[in-house]
Amino acid sequence: MREHEIGPLPGIALPPDGLTQFRNECERLGSTCAEALRLEDVPREVASYLASKQLEPRVVLWHELASLDWAGAGIAIDDRPANGTDRVGVTGCFCAIAETGTVLLLSLPSRPKATALLPETHICIVSKMRLLDTMEEAFARIRNEVGEPPRATYFVSGPSRTADIEQTIVVGAHGPYRVHVVLVP
């Protein structure tokens, strides 16, 4: 087996300011970005996002996020994997990638993929500490921290879309219509 040789990296993979590039790329892909000063502030940020989109303040989320004070922000939560009826899913991520404005999620029993995939709105909490430049760095981190890729290792870059009818881009094909990234320290 070849060593994990990294191919040539173009300029876009070597951003001078990863956070700026991440935000710009998110915008290009149709994801929205917001920032919370502390993890504890996430429910309030989510509440204001849901209000701005006129969405019902009810979310299904990964168990590890259930301990935040959602009730205090006026949000009802479902602490279980998402099913076909949930409207908003809140997840964390393994890391984010500045080059392409991407979030990388890994499957775990406590981190069901359905929560990121089935609801019409996906809210993803990204720690700025885990913002990397490239996919290559993300793979290195998987090797270091997890050993090898788990069953589902999925890179999400903006809301689901299709252009299969007359090459006209329509957002919201089979996955979420909206991807909202909340950056935390």
Partner: peptide, 13 residues
């Protein structure tokens, strides 16, 4: 610049 979903699938649940 990238497709919306790149999904690597390895093994069973």
């Amino acid at each position: 610049s990238i497709a919306n979903y790149l999904t690597l699938t390895t093994g069973v649940k």
